Amino acid sequence: MNPRTAGLLLFVSLISPSTAANVLVNGEFEDPVFVLNGSFQSFASIPGWDPFGSAVAVYLSKPGHGIGTWPNGGAEGSSQFADVGNAPNTGIQQTFTLGSELVAPTLSWFDATSDRVASGLITVSSYVVTLRNGSDQVLVSQSYGTDSKVWTQRSLPGIPTLAAGTYTLSFEATSGERQKDLLLDSVSLIPEPGSTLLLGLGSALLLRRRRA
């Protein structure tokens, strides 16, 4: 590899992290920070997120919520996370606007629940993740389930390149009564790193050819 090509690769590797910023707001559920009063606190809305369906609030939790053993803080090492609940047609959503297309986006998050097992209590916490465009058309949707008190990373496959426009991402609980609450943390939507690198490299090589 000649020095110029090596320099281009280094340049792309340096700029790619800045182009892969999370397009979602408050994906770690750290805003607002609240003083623990009991086991959780509910909000009509929080920055970036709103309830939908039969939900009346967005819940932020800290260790100690409910009965049983719950995750010791958030997935990213903080103390707060979202408690979506377990009732069908209850969830949280975020509407975001892209000023330019998002190439090969990757949506990832962490889920968890408690380890509480009691008579009549189903251990699985199930939910659906859905991405819609500005016309309310479903672009991709998939069901998930968790039965672990340990934070587990998930992802939503099959997301196409998103053109400039408005989109809504939602997490809807589907478990129902006598099942455990869905906990969410570290929700992130970014361009796929490999695609970002290739796009950056292609632009750099094209610029080099024009200068040659």
Rank of each mutant, 00 (worst) to 15 (best):
A204W: 03
S42G: 14
N26S: 08
S39Y: 04
D181L: 02
T19H: 10
S203M: 11
L14D: 09
S143M: 03
N22M: 00
I122C: 02
G48I: 00
S13A: 15
A20D: 13
A104R: 14
S108G: 14
T5H: 11
R209A: 09
L189I: 05
R154W: 04
S79W: 07
S141N: 09
D115T: 12
F110L: 02
G73M: 06
T196G: 15
G176T: 05
P193W: 08
T174M: 07
T69P: 01
T166W: 02
I122Q: 14
R132G: 01
L9V: 14
R4A: 12
Y144R: 09
T5C: 03
D136W: 01
Y167F: 08
D136K: 04
L206R: 14
P191I: 06
G99K: 00
T123H: 05
F110K: 14
A118I: 01
G73F: 00
G68M: 10
S186Y: 12
L107Q: 07
I46K: 07
L189C: 05
F96H: 01
G91N: 09
A163L: 12
D185F: 00
W70Q: 11
L14N: 08
V124D: 12
L206V: 13
G66V: 04
V140D: 05
T113V: 06
P17D: 06
G48W: 04
L201E: 10
L162H: 01
S108N: 10
A6K: 13
P191F: 03
S16T: 15
F43I: 11
V103P: 01
G194C: 05
Y167A: 00
L8T: 08
L102T: 09
P157F: 04
P105Y: 00
I46E: 05
F43G: 09
F96W: 01
T95F: 03
G134R: 01
V117C: 03
L121G: 00
G27C: 03
D147Y: 02
F11Y: 07
L205N: 02
Q137M: 07
I46S: 07
V33A: 15
L189P: 02
V117W: 03
R116V: 10
G145M: 09
V84L: 12
L139K: 02
A118R: 10
F43N: 09
L102E: 15
I15H: 01
R208Q: 12
V58Q: 04
L199M: 09
L107F: 06
L156G: 10
L102Q: 14
L162A: 07
T146R: 05
F40R: 13
D115F: 03
S175T: 15
